[in-house]
Computed example of a mutant assay.
Amino acid sequence: MTALPTQVLVPGGSASTLVAAASGGDTCTAGDGVFLEVNNGNAGARTLTLATPGTVEGLPISDRQVTIPPGERWKIPIPARLYAGSDGQCAITYTPDAASVTVGAFKVI
């Protein structure tokens, strides 16, 4: 998995960059004000699976799946309470593959 750097968006505005999604998946730091921006440049839908390592009353929380239609650009919140593993990271995978998908992790301050 490739670690996505968190790009901080400041009140006066910031440049932002999306990178090619890694075929083996990506990780990003989860937290308040953090979100993923995902651009699906593929002709078919792509589904992101966000690992949810937590439990509620001993029961595992199902991983979140978000389907991005072809040609669309979405923003997905990544709060730590849902997505942070023991290392503070959110694990992201792409199906059927990461072809023509670009992604970036951002934090609004």
Rank of each mutant, 00 (worst) to 15 (best):
P70W: 05
V66N: 00
P79S: 09
A80R: 06
E72K: 08
N42Q: 05
P5S: 09
A22I: 04
V103D: 00
A91D: 05
A21T: 04
T2W: 14
T29S: 15
V38R: 01
L82Y: 15
T17A: 13
A105D: 00
R46V: 14
V8Q: 15
T55Q: 15
G104Q: 09
D87I: 13
S62A: 14
G88Y: 13
A3Q: 14
V66L: 00
C28W: 00
L50Q: 02
P5V: 09
P79Q: 12
R81A: 14
R81V: 05
A45Y: 01
L4Y: 00
V38H: 02
G25C: 05
P77S: 10
V34N: 14
V8Y: 12
T102D: 07
A43H: 06
P77F: 09
V101Q: 07
D97W: 08
I78L: 13
W74K: 12
R81N: 12
L59V: 09
G85Y: 04
G54R: 12
P70Y: 10
A99C: 04
P60S: 02
L48E: 01
G41I: 03
N40C: 06
T2Q: 15
A20F: 03
P60G: 10
V108F: 05
Q65R: 15
T47I: 03
A45D: 05
G33W: 01
V101F: 08
A30L: 04
Q89A: 14
Q89G: 04
A22E: 14
C90H: 07
L9V: 15
I78M: 01
P53R: 06
A30C: 08
A80E: 05
L48C: 06
F35W: 11
T102C: 07
R81I: 05
